[in-house]
Amino acid sequence: MILYDYILSPSCYRVRLMAALLGAEMTSRPVDFHPGREHLSPEMLALNPAGTIPVLTDGSLTLRDSTAMLSYLAAGHDPEWLGEDTPAMRATVAQWLAFSQRLTSSAGAARAHDMLHGPGDIDVLRRAATLALRELEAAISAQRRRGMIFLAGPRPTIADIACFPHVALAPDGGLPLDPYPSIRLWMREIRALDGFIEMPGIHRLHELKPEPGPMPDIRQTRTTRDPKQNA
């Protein structure tokens, strides 16, 4: 399985995160999205005429939509993540997957604008993103009233993984998350999942590690600039 990947892309991170949580093996093939615009190269356009990343290939299968990749990974490794317990849960997952595209086109575009000179009317993008974040906040607060925190039920599903990156990175696009207490708690639960990995802009939960004691002696591992020791 090969992921055509970009370290700063929240949509690529969706797939990396899902694979990490599932323990799925995947080879990352970095694409020089910025500044090289490699996603628009003839080779990449042959793989995905839409010119977007990520692209996931597995044998003869080529996937060009990141939420489809989440479904594929989950179905292959742990179908619990698909959230198909009941018709309602299944539909709820589908709804959040669609919602995650709204996040991509609002919060994601605001971030690309503010960080990488991306196009768009920043006020319009932020207004659309704020509406989406408020919807998410209301939905998670409703889940919390039921003793839950994840979007589609009592456990995390691909719906949570689809929405998480663009929400967590919203501040990059000038959308502070200060006004959203339920979103903050939901993100914390996702960051605390076994196997969670970060991307730039999302910090490690340092609270999961104990405060270190006195400094260990590291002199043994010290290398001078002597090639023999470095080898």
Binding site: Y6, I7, L8, P30, D32, G36, M115, P200, G201, H203
Partner: peptide, 18 residues
């Protein structure tokens, strides 16, 4: 690869950005 080198530095800098 050149892309790896670019991505490594972008990773580091964007960690600082927040």
């Amino acid at each position: 690869s050149m892309t790896d080198l670019i991505h490594f530095q972008q990773l580091i800098f964007v960690q600082d950005r927040s």
